[in-house]
Simulated scan of single mutants.
Amino acid sequence: MTESTGGTVDPDGPLAFEDPEYREAVVDLLGAIAYGEISAFERLAEDARLAPTLEDKVAIVTMATAEFAHVAPLRERLESLGADPFAAMAPFRSAIDLFHAHTAPSDWFEGLIKAYVGDGMANDFYREIAAYLDAETRDLVVATLEDGGHSRFVVDRVRAAIVADHRLGGRLALWGRRLMGEALTQAQRVAAERDALSALLAGGVDRPGLDLAAIGRMFARITERHAERMAELGLDS
């Protein structure tokens, strides 16, 4: 196995699950993503109350519904691996809840930035890890992280608002940088605290993985994608 640069690897599909450490890593990853989807649903549903128009409210509720729809296939995959989905999610509640507590939006536009930038960074982190999974699990993770085109709504709303009020751009740029710092801290905490995920990235005798320099480059790629999203919004990263 080699460092991910956009491609994927397949540790021999079902044979990989004969390694209990690999199975534990997959259960951890799916549990983290599943709870992240539930949290995203709850947050977006709350943000809908801040929507200035009915059209905006419907758009955000639609995004929330899409997030929740991702939970069922993740639960099914966990159950197929003999894991309790709720037990798999439990270790990640604290870190994810803390992230949301530290990044509660104060208004509609901060909520939009968080939905686009914050969720985008988390998804990038999980996609990086997905490159080290068996094909079936990898495909499920990638499908779960698809936004279904909802991001276009956020980009259009934020760009229009910045044109109408240039001062808003500076405030939202600072907010985006704060989200990046909090998201990176959360991702690093999750990777460090869960031994199985760390082992998945580090590899093993039959699964070469990432050394410290490669892990640094992985987080650099995530940071670069954050900058690209901020630019698409018309904001400085």
Rank of each mutant, 00 (worst) to 15 (best):
Met1Ser: 09
Glu3Phe: 05
Ser4Ala: 14
Leu15Asn: 01
Pro20Thr: 12
Val26Leu: 10
Leu30Ser: 05
Glu37His: 11
Arg43Ala: 14
Arg43Gln: 12
Ala45Lys: 07
Thr53Tyr: 04
Asp56Val: 08
Asp56Arg: 03
Ile60Val: 14
Val61Gly: 12
Ala66Asp: 12
Phe68Arg: 04
Ala69Thr: 15
Val71Asn: 01
Val71Phe: 13
Ala72His: 05
Pro73Leu: 00
Leu78Asn: 09
Glu79Val: 08
Glu79Phe: 00
Phe86Gln: 11
Met89Val: 12
Ala90Met: 06
Phe92Lys: 01
Arg93Gln: 15
Ala101Cys: 00
Ala104Glu: 15
Ser106Met: 07
Lys114Tyr: 09
Met121Val: 10
Met121Cys: 05
Asn123Ser: 06
Asn123Thr: 06
Asp124Thr: 13
Phe125Ala: 05
Tyr126Asn: 02
Tyr126Thr: 10
Glu128Val: 10
Ala130Gly: 06
Ala130Tyr: 14
Ala135His: 15
Glu136Leu: 04
Thr137Ile: 10
Thr137Met: 00
Arg138Glu: 01
Asp139Gly: 08
Leu145Met: 07
Leu145Thr: 11
Glu146Thr: 08
Asp147Met: 07
Val155His: 03
Arg157Phe: 13
Val158Phe: 13
Arg159Ile: 09
Ala161Asn: 07
Asp165Ser: 06
His166Met: 03
Trp175Tyr: 09
Trp175Ala: 04
Glu182Trp: 10
Leu184Gly: 00
Thr185Asn: 11
Gln188Arg: 07
Val190His: 00
Asp195Tyr: 07
Ala196Asp: 06
Ser198Arg: 15
Leu201Lys: 04
Ala202Gln: 14
Pro208Arg: 05
Pro208Met: 03
Leu210Pro: 00
Asp211Tyr: 11
Ile215Thr: 07
Gly216Leu: 07
Met218Arg: 08
Arg221Gly: 12
Arg221Asp: 15
His226Thr: 11
Glu228Phe: 03
Gly234Gln: 09
Leu235Pro: 09
